[in-house]
Simulated scan of single mutants.
Amino acid sequence: MNAEQRIAVVTGAGSGIGRAVALTLSGAGWTVALAGRRAAALEETAAAAGPGATVCLPTDVSDPEEVAALFTSVRDRFGRLDLLFNNAGTFGPGPVPVEDLAYDDWRTVVDVNLTGTFLCAQAAYRLMKEQDPQGGRIINNGSVSAHAPRPHSVAYTATKHAVTGLTKSLSLDGRPYRIACGQIDIGNAATDMTERMSTGILQANGEVAAEPVMAAGDVARTVLHMAELPLEANVQFATVMATAMPYVGRG
């Protein structure tokens, strides 16, 4: 590996925020391992990044064996890991009242958003601790839902609150090994996942209203800033949101 080469893993890299972050990192000179369930979508991200900037490693982050294989491949190909952007996530079947949420749907959200985030962070942590020079950075994708829920979002909201605890623990436990961990909490980035915002979404007062969105590239630039800080500095938590979304104020 070139001494100047910086290696990143981005999960959920086939679309949305993951794709935007992967392209922004690669444009800034990072080599990016693209992880996600859909190989074709990863290839589309790789094509947009250009030759040599990325490698596609299809991975289901909720599967411990696939996560282990992902980080083993990164270690074997590049010799080290400098950044994990822990981005893969799912909202689940859509807004569902708590009394109607199926157990299997609950487990799917928990397995991806929380267990998957933990598995990737654990594997990255092990690699960063063992490599020479030691250390690296983990950035977890939280959400505005790590602070305040939307109606009928109990699984998503619970997992995003849990990600905050994971971020704090990783940040503390990583200190002796120069492993920095921060979290970006995103509100209304324009992706397939948030497409319904423009047509109307249930509000806390029972009304349905359209909400403003922002470009995913605005999020990606924030992640790049966090990623390129020296390991002696860390953005512990950052909130990036559409300016006029109904988050700051009364519900």
Rank of each mutant, 00 (worst) to 15 (best):
V240Q: 03
E66M: 12
V154C: 14
Q122M: 13
G16R: 02
P95E: 01
S198H: 12
F237A: 15
S15Q: 12
G165M: 13
L84D: 04
W30M: 14
Q122K: 15
R196M: 13
G89N: 01
D60Y: 07
R37D: 00
M197F: 14
A189Y: 01
D105G: 02
R77D: 04
V213I: 11
L127I: 09
S15G: 05
A35M: 13
L81F: 10
Q203T: 07
Q122E: 14
L202F: 00
I184Q: 08
L166S: 11
R75D: 10
N113M: 00
L81A: 13
S145A: 10
V109Y: 00
G29R: 10
R178Q: 14
Y156M: 02
A121H: 06
V112D: 00
P230A: 08
C120N: 02
G165L: 14
F237V: 15
P93S: 07
L101T: 05
A47T: 10
T164I: 15
T164C: 13
K168Q: 15
G116E: 02
P133R: 03
M193D: 05
V223G: 08
A53G: 01
S198A: 15
S62C: 04
N140I: 03
G116M: 07
T31W: 06
K168N: 15
E228F: 07
H147S: 06
P93V: 05
D218K: 09
G135W: 00
D218A: 14
F78L: 11
R75W: 03
M214Y: 08
G18H: 02
Q122W: 06
G206E: 08
D192V: 13
M245R: 01
T117I: 00
T117N: 05
Y103V: 12
V219Q: 04
V96W: 00
I7L: 15
T157G: 04
T108V: 03
S145Q: 01
L114I: 04
P151H: 03
A68T: 10
N234Y: 02
G251W: 01
R38F: 03
A47M: 05
V61R: 03
L84G: 08
V219I: 15
Y177K: 08
T191S: 04
A8R: 10
A13C: 10
E232M: 10
A242P: 01
A216C: 14
A227T: 03
P149G: 05
G174K: 04
A209H: 08
A48D: 04
T11C: 10
A180R: 15
L42Y: 01
S171R: 15
I138P: 06
V240F: 04
S171D: 12
N113G: 02
A20S: 14
T199D: 12
L57S: 02
A242Q: 06
A189E: 02
M226A: 12
E66T: 07
D173F: 08
F237W: 12
T115K: 06
E195P: 02
M241G: 04
G29F: 11
D192C: 09
